[in-house]
Amino acid sequence: MSETAPAATERGLWQRNKWLLLRRTTQFSILFLFLLGPWFGIWWLKGNLASSVVLDTIGLTDPFILLQSLASGHAAGQAAVFGAVIVLMFYLLVGGRVYCSWVCPINVVTDAANWLRNRLKLNLSWQLKKSTRLWIMVMALATSAITGAIAWEAVNPITMLQRGLVFGMGLAWVIVLAVFLFDLVVTRRGWCSHLCPVGAFYGLVGKRSLVRMNAPERTACTDCGDCFRVCPEPHVIIPALKPEKDTDTSVILDSDCTNCGRCIDVCDEEVFRFSTRFG
């Protein structure tokens, strides 16, 4: 038996879920750091994902929110601009959409929706274009410019949920529930992979980012399809795993990739690993 499926038995539960667990740990740790203040009076991380202060010294600001503020016609304060530059540099290094899979609390919600969708075998999916989120991003910036207010923050489920947990929820559950149901019954991976303009923005930030997913052992691929099924942006895998020419790079260069590492987890042939964009 063990000879017919050696890889499956060699890789334990930890290896098959390592990156998922690391990711969840990071997401919840960041949230917990924000909650240390209001819960225990330990103010290591103050504010919320829109803008925060680390250890009373380093300010961080969400660059997409700041961009909308600039579009609305407000000359942002020095602290906010500086904070946004730090955040941009970080994501240029580790990958833009690392925000989506390692920081964003809505990712936990949509992953849960997708898990349940698979469990319940809900196959109906309303087709949306990947480019929709880019257009929503443009729309959010244009609306900010026209109304003079930071438009997306009026509805943004990410900050709504995170601010809600740290400062007080109000009716923000409604928006979170809406996103969950949307991903569960309307469109597979609907919110994060098709509509969210924040993800679209971070995708653009990560166009030239350094840390990448890589498929160096692609010749070992057995075409089982596990990585495609688990990937929130499966189209990014194809050029690296199934190249037109053998000389094509095995690095996943599509900035839609969120560097979540789930493909590493599920691949029993250990095709994937993290690398730099240079291989």
Partner: peptide, 16 residues
């Protein structure tokens, strides 16, 4: 007020 919603990023640092 008409400029405030374009300037405030809703971070809550003033609240804290």
């Amino acid at each position: 007020e008409e400029d405030f919603t374009g300037a405030c990023v809703r971070c809550g640092l003033c609240v804290r």
